[in-house]
Amino acid sequence: MKPAPFSFVRPQGLQHALEALAADPGAKVLAGGQSLVPLLSMRLAAPSTLVDINALPDLDHVRVDDSGVRVGALARQADVLGSDDVRRVQPLLSLALSQVAHATIRNRGTVVGSLVHADAAAELPMVLTLLGGSVSVASATGTRTIPAAELYAGPLESTLHHDEIAVEALFPGLGPGEGVAFEEVSRRHGDYALCGVAAVVRVEGAHVAEARVGYMSVADVPTVVDLTTALVEEVAQRPSRRARNQGELSDQAVSAAAELALQHLDPADDLHASSAYRAQLVRVLTAHALRAAHDDAVVRGGAPG
């Protein structure tokens, strides 16, 4: 099928784009088009105007600074994935990006577009939420910064106002003692995941100080659960001091963590997987991700094993 008719503008400046957006309540932003154009072709969306932001200047930056990784609205997923600076400052972003679609889609698709598209099955919204990042938006009347925790209102629904353009995303960098991991299972390589899990584990010496885990495709919005208690309690209950100081997370600890996580999730049935299978993926991938992030933290920190 073909898209329904619409008017088109391709502004050369941000102010002009913001005015065009504000002028038509039925207008929509066109970035990489990798999510929007299929929706138009399937006639699941029929905006009256498309505001193509691809000609706007100075929005394709990928910068790292003390606060983390800053990604402009026109930085393509492929460019962020290809950046060594990004991989060094926040490896979780690179890990997640390598799971987003295929290289050809990443050549056009933007990181910011994926964030505001707000798909609960998408990697990047979950990673932004897990890392406590934010998105800066502009409208004809001003700018504001939306923390990731306030960005997702529901399935495919962000809290951006109609007349706002997201100009930059901030992914905080890896903190001291932290390690990260990303695990997902999909039907085919490059497909949206049936379940995806990212973990950030912080160690202090041989102890787990914090463990936060993000989930995609198993709730209506990207969901982050703090699993620190499950890990810390289990370690404290180990019989000997030696066992407590052992580097590895026990089977009991990671399964307790996964059960805790499931209390916050709502794995659904669909064509691709039953809810029971998705719940099982939560258990398995939580264990993998926690262990891998823990190992990563130990290796990075050079902590005793």
């Binding site: 088109f8 391709r10 066109l30 088009g33 990798q34 154009v37 299929p38 072709s41 498309l50 193509d52 691809n54 492929a78 290289a103 050809t104 889609i105 050549n107 056009r108």
Partner: peptide
């Protein structure tokens, strides 16, 4: 760079 021509508009 490879791109899907079905996901771009000619005007873009």
């Amino acid at each position: 760079r490879p791109a899907r021509s079905c996901l771009m508009f000619a005007v873009s």
